[in-house]
Amino acid sequence: MSQSSAAAAASGPATTNSSLHTPAPAAPHRTAPRSDWFTIPEPLRLVFKRFPLVTYAPNELPVRSPSNRELPVLYVFASDQDVLKGLPSYNPSCLKWQTFLKLAGVQFRIASSNNHASPTGALPFLIPSSSPSDAASQTPIPSNRLERFALEQGSEKLADAAGSKLDAYQALLDHRIRNAWLYTLYLSPGNASLLSQLYVEPCSTSTVVRTTILHKLRRAAEAEILQSIGAPRVPPTALCIGAEQAFEALSAGLGSDKWFFGNSRPGLFDAAVFAYTHLLLDDSLDWIDTRLRDSLLKFPALAEHRERLLSRCWGQARE
């Protein structure tokens, strides 16, 4: 027997007992793909690869906006009839800036709008005068930049007031008087008809839509009041008392002067006060719940201040 044959015989057949106890080579281990919340499924990944996400530019102005504006346009809450006559807005925030621009000597016109149509989500906003070739001037100016715009573009030098006294008086407007205003117009049952006339009826003729808008307006007003006073419910009597105390403080601060802080010219704070006093005393607004108006009438200095500004800006003083 050859040496190779002997080796083969010694090793035995392929299926010996020793071969049964020898482990077969292990198959390569494959790690299952890991999945987590941040993994995009393959079908969606392919969709986004074909249609990538993009960031859109800010909304353009409405098509009806004139492309060639010789005058700046202030967009405010106002009826179409009042816009044609250039009358004061029926919204305090809008009226404040409408008045201030007039005091600053800025030539402008007003246009009727609403918060949904505003690029900033709130009124007022202003579109500067422009021409089609001036793309930069198409950018809206929100209310928090209107003071600077008026000071730069206006022809009149306005009074400047600052300091703790201004802050204290401004707080009276922003809290006590505004809270009472919100209750009086938005939540008082007696003035429901006026609220609907100003803010609801112009939006739609649908009863369902009007009801929804009215509900949202009232909820928003209630939420703002509650956040301001830190209470679980709206206290109508306390709000009216607080507003009357604020009117008393403002009247004492004005004293026998024509304008606040003893200035020789009216300024931004005068416009802010006028925005409330004018609307409460405006005979064209049909106030049924007159508690806030009656409180204001107890302080003739504020009523006279309103008449002076009305005459100065609109030439409609009622002697």
Rank of each mutant, 00 (worst) to 15 (best):
W37S: 13
S251Y: 03
A7D: 09
P236L: 03
H29K: 01
D282A: 14
N91A: 12
I241K: 15
E319G: 06
I288W: 01
S89H: 12
Q316S: 14
C94R: 04
L95G: 12
R265I: 01
I127M: 12
P41V: 07
A192T: 14
P119K: 03
S131G: 08
L84E: 15
N114Q: 00
A231I: 06
P119V: 00
D283E: 09
P62S: 11
A221E: 08
S137M: 10
P43S: 06
A8W: 10
A117G: 09
F269T: 09
S11N: 05
I127Y: 10
L198F: 00
S5K: 07
Y183A: 09
D167K: 12
P72A: 09
E319D: 11
C203M: 15
A317H: 02
P202N: 13
F48I: 05
T31A: 13
K49N: 15
R218F: 02
Q197G: 02
R291W: 00
R145Y: 03
A159D: 01
F48G: 04
S137I: 02
K85T: 08
S79W: 02
E156A: 08
Q316E: 08
L158K: 02
Q81R: 07
L281R: 01
A303T: 14
L187E: 07
L101K: 10
A10E: 15
